[in-house]
């Protein structure tokens, strides 16, 4: 597993320091893992997601993407469209575009992808998500679940290494939620990337490899379920403890 993102001492404050977003975050995101970022509302999950996603600027600290700082990248927009995918809590599809155009929009700036290939990829993903029959419908004409599946197709169309999802199952029924999680899991297998999901949903925690718990802008625990599973088969308590990466920060 390679390190996709390394975060050290990440802090974000708002209103000239009056409001603390996140504080002193140290975290490593490795390829092949699904990370569930959990915690109560306002604990800093979305802030951390925005900072990792380059949608916000840290007040302090550093984030390395495959060992590179953001200012070493050719352009932020190119980096976003090649490295990252976003799924927002409220889908945020463009209402005047069709579902297919919305999915295609994430590939639009990439001139190396022909329009034919773009269309094929979009349709294939929509079919995969079970909403291919709604491809030509405008985003405003379809249900919440269909929109969210469209939003996930948009986030996956360019095969990002890192997928950031903010409550992707928060506004859909349990059946759709399960479908979404399946697709995300499948995505990890094909791309060897990583997914960081901010969520309250226990189903997401179930499928995640690593559960990161946040409280008051800080990470209070990181539970690596893979380490626990491997350690279950090991012979000693020491092995179990050494593989189970539980980190507590004050």
């Amino acid at each position: 597993m390679s390190k996709l993102v390394e975060i050290s001492g990440l802090t974000k404050v708002y209103d000239e320091g009056l409001v603390q977003g996140v504080s002193g975050i140290n975290l490593v995101l490795e390829s092949g893992n699904i990370y569930a970022l959990m915690g109560t509302s306002g604990c800093g999950k979305s802030t951390l997601l925005n900072l990792i996603g380059t949608l916000d600027i840290p007040s302090q600290g550093e984030i390395l993407y495959e060992g590179k700082r953001l200012n070493e990248m050719e352009s932020i927009s190119k980096f976003r469209r090649e490295f990252m995918g976003f799924v927002f809590q409220f889908h945020h599809l463009i209402p005047v575009l069709t579902l297919q155009e919305n999915v295609e929009s994430a590939l639009l700036p990439n001139r190396q992808v022909s329009s034919k290939e773009r269309q094929n990829r979009a349709l294939s993903l929509l079919n995969d998500m079970g909403v291919g029959h709604r491809a030509k419908a405008f985003a405003r004409q379809i249900s919440g679940g269909e929109r969210q599946r469209g939003a996930i197709a948009r986030a996956l169309i360019h095969h990002p290494k890192l997928l950031l999802a903010d409550e992707p199952t928060g506004n859909v029924d349990s059946k759709t939620a399960m479908l979404i999680l399946e697709k995300l899991r499948a995505h990890i297998k094909t791309t060897s990337g990583a997914i960081l999901i901010a969520t309250h949903d226990p189903n997401v925690a179930d499928i995640a490899d690593v559960i990161i718990e946040m409280e008051d802008g800080k990470i209070v625990s990181i539970i690596n379920k893979m380490a626990i599973t491997e350690s279950d088969n090991s012979s000693s308590l020491e092995d179990f403890n050494s593989h189970m990466r539980v980190t507590l920060f004050d």
């Binding site: 996603g53 949608l55 352009s75 927009s77 190119k78 976003r80 469209r81 090649e82 990252m84 995918g85 976003f86 927002f88 945020h92 463009i94 929009s105 994430a106 639009l108 700036p109 948009r154 986030a155 360019h158």
Partner: peptide, 16 residues
């Protein structure tokens, strides 16, 4: 404004 933010987030360059 929200739409512009979404387009930026999915990698649209500013000039586009």
């Amino acid at each position: 404004t929200k739409e512009l933010g979404v387009l930026s987030a999915i990698g649209w360059p500013r000039q586009m």
